[in-house]
Design a protein around this nucleic acid. Structure first.
Lengths: 376, 376
DNA sequence: TACTTCACTGCAAAGGTTTGCACAAAGATC
DNA sequence: GATCTTTGTGCAAACCTTTGCAGTGAAGTA
């Protein structure tokens, strides 16, 4: 019943190899023959069997996309962009959800390895060493984690944290809390590092609360702690937690931004819809999805696979090109941040250390410039 | 480099067919041999090549999931549930996004057809006849659309609309607007049909506004119309539109629920986070994803495929089992609905037509009971 | 003892495609 | 007009696995 290359060959009176070439190497076949074959194929509704093709070429034209939690609104735009980009290049995308579980991640990489040309690992919870080990099994591109020797797509949350802290300090806040993210998250560590440094540089105190689950309830659960900590501003690991915190503070009768200012990270679409609208560090999630697919596919076309004539070639020139891309973030100021107790007064560090509220203290952040591609 | 069944055979001193059977028909191989083979396979890190397996068995152990818009928060829970359910049964899921475009849908079904054992079509925008035609190419399960002769997973939005209208009328509203969804949406038609009937039965007027894009901005854009229509309550096609409407009304200075009550459909997680919290008809999206996968896989195991010994068998007993499942919806009352102008007065239709506010008028709705599975 | 049954394993074909090589015919070069 | 390219096509092997059939012993039966 399913129409194969053989049916097309019979219908157009050529050998199957000619049909094959009509699709995979059109320049090798006579234009007249080509149109005839194409017409027959169209007629019969022929579609090449990708499994058979994969078997011999060693490329499946599939990629795997491993996500910590599809239901987390941070990811869908990334998934959407990655799928779209992949499809433009004639790749299909397996999407898999790990429920934030490192063991599930590992198992999924194994399960997918034979079936895809590469895997996008988004916000992994695994250890670095495990990721490196897995990368020997299947080409990997990591999103939201920096790993030497592996292609990574990063969002410059460090810069975002600095902007956020400076924004808050500029508004007159000196006692700031950071709501940490989940254990094992590179983003969370990076955020903490940059926020601490920025707070120190600006003469503010930073209290770290966490780790927390990166969810609304994770933020809600910390509302009481936030109030008790006596801070006047909070930077949350992500918007979901920030929104949960908004809920929690509301329930406690704490007004935002009059009593406490709140800043999120991600700029999920939801953050425009809360009351007050959330001030947040926008991360370019769709761009990250696109970029990650591009990097994976570029790597894929460079490396030869199991095809017939391989063998020695792999051992010789394998030197992988491991680019790392850092995407820019941007502070989006909305209504959840307002003046703090020191509003209008001179900032403690400002006169001594820099040119004013928009000074960019950069105490040892990532050296990769925003938007740059650096091969290593 | 990649380890094949042959490597395992060599290592364990048996023929490759024995290795194959160790995995696909363990009861046919001597327990001692089996453990030896398994040990070798484990050692070498062997994973069967699914492309090769697909080639001969005719089943890929993949399914396709075609979604109108991944970024629409209605879908991620469905995707997540479907993926999880599929994985439990050793299937992987291709996710593809159509951007609400019917042509893209068709193309995707074609593209995926050869590569999957079946496709889940979620909230399709295609015509019924096209869907039926495509279903001859690859097994299909349709979500959110009723099609005779095809397995469908439906949410009882009709019941939901009735509950919503009755809730509003019970609160004293008589002039109600329905914000329609996108053209081609079965859910939108169904909603409209049931809401009209329910409004008529309860003696209220229903104004239909639309069709609209099923997004926040789609709802926002209708705020002005809603005010001009002079209604005191609105039922929106989905939560996203309802939330957009909330925004729009707020911008116009119309207070919710004091001046206008708003009801959404879906109960996306976001609807708990707006101010006021949204009253909505909860649809069981995760259950729909699970159910759809189950139905597809059940159908899949029933129908034989291209395998060696097929042939006549297909022609004989092909009679597809096309179950249709209707999942129950539930009205969740939150803060966006409040008393209307007729609050406290006697309802016009109530005394004449039924037993009171929770009467269930059912003027020609679907005959399939909620939660029932009906083979046709 | 001779025969059947049974459990296990090996053999080889098949599935749809790609691709290196060989070959033929036509055109180019001298 | 003989040789060399070029262009287009066919041939057949290879990719990795599954599976019907046949074969081998050993155990059970008469």
């Amino acid at each position: 019943m399913p129409v194969t290359i053989r049916d097309v060959a019979r219908a157009s009176g050529v050998h199957i190899s000619t049909v094959s070439r009509t699709f995979s190497a059109p320049h090798l076949v006579n234009p007249e023959t080509r149109v005839r074959v194409l017409a027959c194929a169209e007629d019969l509704g022929y579609r090449p069997n990708r499994a058979a093709r994969a078997l011999i070429t060693g490329r499946t034209h599939n990629i795997g996309l491993i996500i910590a939690d599809i239901a987390n609104p941070f990811f869908p735009p990334l998934i959407k962009a990655a799928e779209s980009q992949a499809r433009h290049r004639d790749y299909h995308v397996f999407v898999a959800d790990t429920n934030e579980d490192a063991a599930a991640e590992e198992e999924l990489v194994h399960a997918l390895a034979k079936q895809v040309d590469g895997v996008l690992l988004c916000s992994p919870r695994m250890s670095n060493s495990l990721i490196e080990q897995l990368s020997r099994e299947v080409p990997l591109v990591v999103v939201n984690r920096q790993l030497a020797g592996l292609p990574c797509v990063l969002m410059d949350v460090g810069q975002g944290a600095r902007s956020a802290i400076e924004h808050l300090v500029g508004l007159g806040h000196r006692e700031i809390a950071l709501l940490g993210g989940p254990r094992g998250s590179w983003t969370s560590r990076e955020l903490r590092r940059a926020a601490s440094a920025a707070a120190r540089a600006a003469g503010a105190d930073l209290t770290v609360l966490g780790p927390n689950p990166p969810t609304e309830s994770g933020g809600l659960a910390q509302a009481e702690q936030v109030r008790r900590a006596g801070v006047t501003a909070v930077l949350a690991y992500n918007d979901l937690m920030a929104i949960g915190l908004l809920e929690g503070l509301d329930a406690l009768g704490v007004r935002v931004p009059q009593e406490v200012s709140v800043v999120g990270v991600d700029d999920i679409s939801l953050s425009r819809l809360t009351r007050p609208k959330l001030t947040t560090v926008a991360t370019p999630t769709a761009a990250a999805g696109r970029t990650a697919v591009d990097m994976l596919l570029q790597q894929d076309t460079e490396l030869p696979r199991t095809g017939r004539g391989s063998g020695a070639a792999v051992a010789v020139g394998v030197r992988r090109t491991t680019a790392q891309v850092m995407l820019q973030t941007e502070l989006v100021i909305r209504d959840s941040t307002g003046p703090g107790p020191y509003a209008g007064r001179e900032r403690p560090g400002a006169t001594a250390a820099g040119p004013g509220p928009h000074r960019r203290a950069d105490p040892g952040g990532p050296t990769v410039a925003a938007g740059d591609v650096v091969a290593s």
